[in-house]
Design a protein around this nucleic acid. Structure first.
Length: 282
DNA sequence: CGATTCCCCTGATAGC
DNA sequence: TGCTATCAGGGGAATC
């Protein structure tokens, strides 16, 4: 589901909408989706929004932070106070909130609402003390941010510690690099002309350099396109992202490679669907 | 230790 | 039409 570009798009969207707003009510439609004492956030104000890997953070007054992971099917949809019933005119979502998959509803003092929807219930909202973030179990495991202070040498060394693995599962490993999921992994490997099942031990430093720059390139393009809307992803206004319109391999099985016209293939690698061009990627 | 498999859920879609 | 099998962008735990 949402990978780095989708979560970044949500972050940028929320920054412009909810900073400064006060939460006056929280509805837990699915208690399992919210960890912590939701009553603590009543009357707290949104101070800052951040992203780390695929995790979204919402810092509140009172030294509290909401951490949100959307996993496979999570969505965050914001409805401004002036949104008329029946759907926003610019939204791609054709039903207004809440929907069947709505798990948590945040109500702000200006009557606007933030909906956490999650069909598969894998995602979570977790309330933590802001001061405990630096020791948070999930965050502390994450590898470097690909778009912030990225160190090429560290990346290459870290990848090489998994020399027996296939390269695709290594770049999906969040301890190696944070935020890359299946879609952008497939696309980055295509750009770098590396077969997804290739063993790390068979890759040169130059291969890994090209892979690193390819990851950065596809993530930036993903952000520019507003993310990938295959099934579940929408931005906070209910609009789609358009990265898949320019994707070269993901979800293009049987279609022509945009470089050489060979049919794009799909195989399962480490349990995940992997798309690649059998001619360009060796 | 690292690598692989199973599993948490629900719904869409493909195949019969 | 209706049934069943498979699959979906993640990641934790158990197992090998």
């Amino acid at each position: 589901m949402p990978e780095l570009p989708e979560v970044e798009t949500i972050k940028l969207g929320l920054e412009g909408k909810i900073i400064g707003l006060k939460i006056i009510q929280v509805d837990l439609l699915e208690p399992k989706s919210f960890q912590g004492d939701s009553k603590k956030i009543i009357n707290q104000t949104v101070k800052n929004i951040w992203r780390r890997g695929k995790v979204l953070g919402i810092d509140l007054s009172g030294d509290l932070t909401l951490m949100i992971h959307l996993k496979m099917s999570g969505q965050l949809i914001y409805e401004g106070k002036d949104r008329f019933s029946g759907g926003h005119p610019t939204s791609d979502i054709n039903s207004s909130m809440p929907v069947k998959s709505t798990r948590v509803i945040f109500l702000f003092s200006d009557k606007s609402k933030l909906f956490f929807n999650d069909q598969r219930k894998f995602g979570w909202v977790k309330l933590v003390d802001t001061n405990d973030l630096k020791t948070d179990k999930f965050l502390s495991k994450l590898g470097p941010e690909p778009l912030i202070n990225f160190n090429l040498e560290d990346f290459i060394n870290k990848v090489k510690t998994h020399k027996k693995s296939n390269i695709k599962s290594v770049i999906l490993d969040q301890t190696v690099i944070a935020g890359v999921g299946n879609i952008y992994a497939c696309e980055a490997l295509f750009l770098a002309k590396i077969h997804p099942a290739k063993s790390v031990s068979d890759l040169s430093d130059d291969n890994l350099k090209l892979l690193a720059s390819s990851i950065i390139k596809v993530l930036n393009l993903g952000i520019k396109k507003g993310g990938s809307s295959k099934t579940h992803y929408f931005n906070i206004d209910g609009g789609k992202g358009y990265f898949l319109d320019v994707a070269c391999v993901y979800d293009r099985e049987g279609l022509e490679c945009k470089i050489c016209k060979t049919a794009i293939a799909k195989v399962k690698i480490s349990g995940r669907g992997s798309y690649f061009c059998p001619n360009c990627q060796i």
